[in-house]
Design a protein around this nucleic acid. Sequence first.
RNA 1: GCUGGAAUAGCGCAGUCGGUAGCGCAACUGAUUCGUAAUCAGUAGGUCGAGGGUUCGAGUCCCUUUUCCAGCUCCA
Length: 588
Amino acid sequence: MKVICRNNEMREGSFEEQWVKEAFWHTSAHVLAQAVKRLYPDTKCAIGPAISQGFYYDFAFSFSFGDEHLRLVEDEMRKIVAEALTVRVYEMEREEAAAYMRERDERYKLEMIENLPAKEMISFYRQGEYAEFCAGPHISNTCHIKAFQLLSIAGAYWRGDEKNEMLTRIYGISFPKVSELTAYLQRAEEAKKRDHRKLGKELGLFTIFEQGPGFPVFLPKGMVLKNLLIDYWRRIHHREGYMEISTPVMLDRSLWEMSGHWEYYRESMYTLQIDETDFAVKPMSCPGGVLVYQSKPRSYKELPMRLGELGLVHRNEKSGTLHGLMRVRAFTQDDAHIFMTKEQVIGEIQNVARIIDEVYTKFGFAYRVELSTRPEHSIGSDEEWEMATDALKKAMDGIGVSYVINEGDGAFYGPKLDFHLQDSIGRTWQCGTIQLDFQLPARFHIEYIGSDGQAHCPIMIHRVVFGSIERFIGILIEHYAGKFPLWLAPVQVKILPIAERFHDYAEETADRLEKAGLRCEMDERTEKIGYKIREAQLDKVPYMIIIGQKEAEAGEISVRSRDQGDTGSMSIEEFIEKIREEDGMHSC
RNA sequence: GCUGGAAUAGCGCAGUCGGUAGCGCAACUGAUUCGUAAUCAGUAGGUCGAGGGUUCGAGUCCCUUUUCCAGCUCCA
């Protein structure tokens, strides 16, 4: 495929190469804009880039653009592709380009041109009657866009700023071959099948009531899963010298004023009055942790003091941002606050990073680390921020963890290391964070008595590993497509008697497996074995045990694995042994 | 919050031009006692998300509202 670049150079490349894909999708976006202008000439064009999968274009329509218009635009695009328009590139002086856009009343284009450096020549790409100022590159002819589909309409703010007017964004995908489009759409269907909202409903893990938008409800099986994760979390943190505490869900306003939340986090907090005093429901557990630290005099001998808390926090998220378990208004943070001396900072950060690595590795997640620096809206001096940011860098360098810098995305009280893990469909989610905080200890005047007999202000780390247990569960559901590993499966073994007369033996088996610590269920219905297997399989239970004449006589059990199918018969002891081996691979 | 869609039985869905609500699975009852992904028959189940309006008549048209979905903004 030929790609035409800004300097009129023609390059050749295959669609598999990223830079060709970008040119291809970029031209697709231009074809979309061309079709829109043909059908609705008074529409104003904003921007239309290629994205990681496909392209979009932002328009300002003079009417409400809906799904029915999308099909019409597609038809027009088909014509443009059939016309096999050659794409040509040429340059204009800035003033000339501005005049061109002014003449056509393309106010967004004009604004963009006016924002470009003064002396620069401005490149235009033209296909047929449609010309647009654009840095390119583009493919050389519209005829290559053989297979495309407009996927969705969405609102998007001009220049991504919520204060600006909202434009209509049209998303699309395109390929040189119809087979590639079909494959893409099939992959999208597959991804939908692992959607945690769908699986959560099908597997009876969680729900969200219409009466409580953003407030997730754990059903019995989801609760088993949540508790297993919490058990695992407790084992690790106990091993690492953490103590667990629990602080109130709501506290007096004065505390939040002291911590800075009242000023810096107010719009995200739920507030209420008790006896004419303002209270806020906690959006974070840190002030409670600080109060626990402060509850008695502390010695340097107690440091580092690691206080863990599975804190239920509430945040008033905007309604449109809610998404299953991934984005909610109430969630459990696996929080901990570590109070320490200056000398202990690096070591503690590294220790937390090791825990996060251990946990993510156990679930088979890849992750990447970002260092988020001082945001605009924040407290503390530049020196403190620099020191804190430096400490985070040093700690990561010391254990050879690489990271990228995320400017201005820190918490209002300190810089942070964010751990973004990648799920099974390539999306990334922020889960773990390590935040270094010089501010809260100072604001609360907390101290410890050092070996010199003097009072000192400790340094504090806020950190989470799962991040939010709710979100982590959502990610796990999609990561495993609902097929949880044995140690996490809400039901590990389903016992399926073939007929009623084997129920006694089945119950005896269940009893022995439960005594061995397995989570069992028995399907006592008078259904055919094929039906019971089908249902257990759809429930994604790791092991099914079939019990009939043969097993009862031999005193054995037939084992069917969710993933491998029929694995033949064995004694109960053998099965328990087999399970223990498998489970052992996953315990910490 | 903003833009565009959607909401019909527990779940998945159909419902034409506005004419009085249906299918499959699940549930329940009965029969069947069965060997590795769906046994058969019957029964019951609905203020068509909520509120208002237009109309002789509204699941269907209009307005308001709630929730969900795709995004934007934001974020654990």
